[in-house]
Amino acid sequence: MRGTNSFWHPLLHVFICLVLSCLAFMGSEPAKLSILWFTSFIYAAFRVKGGAIGLVKTHWRSLPLLLSLAFVQLLFRRQGDLLWQFGIISLSREGANYLAVLSLRLLIVILSAKALAVLDFKEFSTAFHSLRLPEEFSFMLSYAVHLVPSLLSSWKGYFQSLKLRGIAINKLSIPNRLKIYKVLALSSLAALIKNSEGQAIALELRGFRSSGERSSMHERRFRFFDWVAIFMIFLAAALYLWL
C-alpha cells in the first residue's frame, strides 16, 4: 500500500516510541541510557526526513538546553567525590552522573517524539482503530504530536513575512524587537486556535465522528511480522531492565 511509508503497522511505531520514552525514565545508569539513546537514534534516523544528519542537527540545536542543565549541576550539586573545582564552581561525581542521565533522557524523549511526529493522522487512526479506540483519540493525539512542529513552522513563516517586509529582526532595537515578539506571540496563539478549529470543521464536513460503521480503503491488519516485532521489543525491554 502506498501513502503510508512503512512496512510495519503504525501501531508498532507508536509502541516503539512509547517503550523508548518509558525506558528512558526507568533506567538511571548513564551506560544503559547511552545504549538506549543509540537505539533511539538509529530508529529515528530510519524514520525521520533528513535521516542521521537531520538528527545531528537536532542534537546541535538542543545543545544550549543541555549546557544550561550542565551549568545548574555545576553550581548546585555538591554530593559525591569532587572531580574539579574553580572558586565556588565545582563539579562532583554525582553532579556529572546526574547531568549525563538528564541529558540522555531528554535526547531519547526528543528522538522518540520526532519519530512519532512522522506518523500522520491517517496512520494514528489506523493504529488506534486496531485497538478499537475512538477516532477522536487518534485526532487528539495526532494534533498534540504535531503541535510543536506546526508552531515552529508558523514562527518560521512569521519571520519570513518580516523579511519580505525588509525587517531583519536581529538588526532592530530591543524595544522594537519586543514589540514584534509580543504581536507574533499573540498571533501564533490565535492562529493555532483558528487552525485547530478549521481542521475540526474540515473533518466533520466529511463525516468524522458520524454515526454508522466506517470502512477502510486500505485495511491494515496486525500481521505475523508485527506480532514478532512486538514480542522482540518486549524481550529487549525486559533485558534492558534486568541488566
Partner: peptide, 22 residues
C-alpha cells in the same frame, strides 16, 4: 489551506467515503 489533513490526495478523497462505510 486548513482543509487537508491526510498524507495523500487519495486518502483525502477516500476519507469521506470511508466515513460513509462504503
Amino acid at each position: 489551506e486548513t482543509q487537508f489533513l491526510m498524507p495523500s490526495c487519495e486518502a483525502e478523497i477516500a476519507f469521506a467515503l470511508e466515513n460513509r462505510g462504503m
